[in-house]
């Protein structure tokens, strides 16, 4: 089966920051959440995927093809939504649509676009400089989904938006992957969204990919416990992923398989995993 994204030894140096080498494979038909701190390299990765930036080393294959060999016609297969629209602010909905119709030619789907615009209630008389942040993102999403793309990349697209709009976005992403040839790769800080819908979580830290795992396995692997210092002493050091000591005890994230089975552990969230892992690395 053809993979949606394949990265082999991908490396990019930007000043003092080095991304990679990253090896990552995203199968078709899934939603991948790409998480990490600010400056971890998430946006750099997405820019490299879109060929807006060129790697120093390594190979990027999207939908089975090397990105260097992508022709302008093939770019319709890839869609993206950033945190801003990057369109001239004086354009109205109509201007934007005409522009994209020319950009994508035959691939452009007037009806899909009209449906999404109606679903989002976007005004057709206003120029986009009068659009709210949420409306801009909705327009970005409508544009991205209206040229038959098979891979959708979102870079912090929903950050700064209210929970209701984010919820709508989740619905749209879930609709999108009803087609098993469609794939979504989404970088986000808002991890509760990803917790609901992502199939895989890829975690990048200081330019290095720490893991990519199915969300279910990931969340079953760890547990959180509140312990006393004495209880902590008795545990296998290897079991401790990260801890938060406080005046009245210590909270720890543990690897379930390395603690006794009668140990009471609470479920973790993706946010817990990210925070405890990063803080665990600092010690």
């Amino acid at each position: 089966m053809q993979n949606a994204i394949e990265l082999r030894g991908l490396k990019k140096r930007l000043g003092n920051f080095v991304l990679g080498p990253i090896d990552l494979t995203v199968p078709r038909g899934c939603i991948v959440g790409y998480i990490g701190e600010n400056g971890a390299g998430k946006s750099t990765t997405i820019k490299l995927l879109l060929h807006l930036m060129f790697p120093d080393e390594g190979e990027i294959r999207l939908l089975g093809k090397d990105v260097q060999e992508f022709t302008p016609q093939m770019k319709k297969d890839i869609a993206y939504v950033f945190d801003d629209l990057y369109l001239p602010e004086d354009m109205t909905l109509n201007n934007v649509q005409n522009f994209h119709r020319k950009l994508y030619g035959q691939a452009w789907q007037d009806k899909t676009f009209a449906d999404l615009v109606a679903r989002f209630n976007l005004p057709d008389s206003k120029s986009i400089k009068h659009f709210s942040r949420g409306m801009k993102m909705q327009l970005g999403l409508a544009l991205a989904l209206s040229h038959g793309a098979r891979l959708l990349l979102l870079d912090e697209a929903t950050s700064g938006l209210d929970p209701v709009i984010r919820d709508d976005v989740l619905d749209i992403l879930l609709d999108y992957i009803q087609n098993e040839n469609h794939t979504v790769f989404v970088s986000s800080h808002i991890l509760s969204d990803l917790e609901k819908v992502a199939d895989y979580i890829a975690f990048i830290h200081k330019g290095q990919l720490l893991f990519m795992e199915t969300k279910d396995d990931l969340m079953n692997q760890y547990g959180i416990a509140s312990l006393s210092e004495e209880q902590l002493e008795e545990l296998d050091d290897m079991a401790i992923v990260g801890k938060r000591p406080h005046q009245f005890g210590v909270e720890v994230m543990l690897k379930r398989e390395l603690v006794p089975s009668d140990f009471e552990l609470e479920k973790v969230s993706i946010e817990d995993i990210m925070v405890y892992m990063i803080k665990g690395k600092r010690k």
């Binding site: 038909g29 939603i31 609709d175 009803q178 098993e180 199939d199 199915t214 969300k215």
Partner: peptide, 17 residues
Amino acid sequence: IRFLAKELRVSVITTKR
């Protein structure tokens, strides 16, 4: 499995399993 995942808002991997 995809429809069930969408409706329940869980991962496709979960419903497939």
